[in-house]
Nucleic acid binder design. Structure first.
Lengths: 208, 208
DNA sequence: TAGATTGTTAATCGATTAACAATC
DNA sequence: TAGATTGTTAATCGATTAACAATC
């Protein structure tokens, strides 16, 4: 079982490129071709594939359909994943309305917020009060939550989510969450990303 | 000159923790304390500091104020950075309104979009048509852009930005941009992040 | 002084890449 | 068959950690 995050991310990238190839009418790819398309060395492609148990034919390359089918299963693309959004501020609202998720098999099932003004159970994506969070997660068997609350509220919300049985959190609060239970957390720290860019931009300038 | 991305990200983290310590009235920290607070080994803290030329006193630890001052300069916190947002869809709009940027010295100066309906030069953060992009960047000496257009429009928009002189791009389109010139690109791929969570969530379940 | 903490060097670890035998 | 490409092993690379001498 592959537990390397980068490796799994590359798998997503391969998959996307393969779908493109398939659309163009291709049936097979070589590690070389796919590497080119994804910015990865051919050796890396072959290594990754063998790690995930995807085999090709010496000299014949890899069959695109076979690869896609296997990836489908590995990445859980064989079913639609229901995700909730906790915190319906700017970011939360944007993600609730974010279209591209749909075609990726990700469906935003509901939003949650403490602010009574934001509650709207009748909306296309219903927004419920935080009190309903736990029962909703349990009833609908939600596993993944997007956490888009403020920095100060994030840890508490995280604890609630874990307690309710959430096992994956995409966190937009600019802090390192310290989970109480067994949960996978990916953090998108926008400030840090920009800070990073500012730093490297400065370096670029100095190099000239 | 440190060109390691992870290392710079840690610097952001240290800075944040140090601000917290300072607020609590602390004057010095040890690599041990700071490591604890940021989830980094003390050795890593010291290594990072020495890489950035920040020194402490043997036995005395590091002076918080001195560290912060140095970090301020390294991370460009001594000035306000004007950033533009290209693509005023769900994500773009959310980022334009995202409050926490302000206290981080990041100011969203303007938005740009091709859709005439979205243009609004009178708004608090004015939204201009794409035609004005290049002249705006040049005139206002913008260095960093947030790219929040659709996947199909992203590469072209990227080229425009680079041509106009942008040196840092925070990209939200789920593709690997292939820049024409010298530009630093950080990509936030939301689909991939969720896909990743789905994968690891599945693993967690199987382990039980 | 004795003790604690830095700063740096060396060791370790993990991930990527190169190389090449196996084989289609 | 000759040639090309996989699959895997070994080499390389880079980043993290451990260790410890220097020193406050």
């Amino acid at each position: 079982m592959v537990v390397n995050k980068k490796c799994v991310s590359r798998l997503s990238r391969y998959r996307k490129a393969l779908l493109r190839f398939k659309n163009l009418g291709f049936v097979k790819v070589f590690s070389d071709t796919l590497g080119d398309a994804t910015g990865v060395t051919p050796a890396q492609v072959r290594k990754d594939f063998s790690l995930f148990g995807m085999v090709g034919k010496k000299r014949g390359g890899y069959e695109i359909d076979a690869l896609l089918e296997k990836m489908q299963v590995i990445l859980g693309k064989d079913q639609i994943h229901k995700v909730i959004v906790v915190g319906v501020g700017n970011i939360g609202r944007a993600l609730i309305q974010y279209k591209p998720f749909e075609k990726d098999g990700i469906s935003i099932a509901a939003g949650f917020d403490i602010d009574p003004v934001k509650i709207n159970p009748k909306a296309q994506v219903p927004i419920y009060p935080m009190q309903d969070l736990k029962s909703y997660i349990r009833k609908k068997k939600i596993e993944i939550a997007i956490l888009a609350v403020s920095e100060i509220a994030a840890q508490e919300a995280c604890d609630l989510l874990v307690d309710a049985g959430i096992t994956g959190i995409l966190n937009f609060a600019p802090i390192r969450l310290q989970p109480l239970g067994d949960v996978e957390i990916n953090t998108v720290n926008l400030q840090m990303e920009l800070e990073n860019l500012i730093y490297f931009t400065k370096i670029l300038k100095h190099r000239k």
